[in-house]
Amino acid sequence: MKPAAAALDDGVPSPCIDVCKMNGDTGYCEGCLRTIGEIAGWSTYSDCQKRAVLERLPARQTPC
């Protein structure tokens, strides 16, 4: 196993940072901020759909 370098092709890299723990309150992963559906569906998404998910993530960060 090794940390992901930038994708070799044009593909949109997964935002996983190996925390992999769902937050029961928010429904988002505490590491990558995706929903379970978004994580499970990731490999079926087009690059366009993946980018759309990534764009949604910053807004999900809970302010301290």
């Binding site: 196993m1 997964s14 996983c16 190996d18 992999c20 994580i39 499970a40």
Partner: peptide
């Protein structure tokens, strides 16, 4: 076939 793509800690 559904691939659940994880990170590096998990396959």
């Amino acid at each position: 076939i559904r691939v659940l793509e994880r990170g590096w800690l998990s396959s």
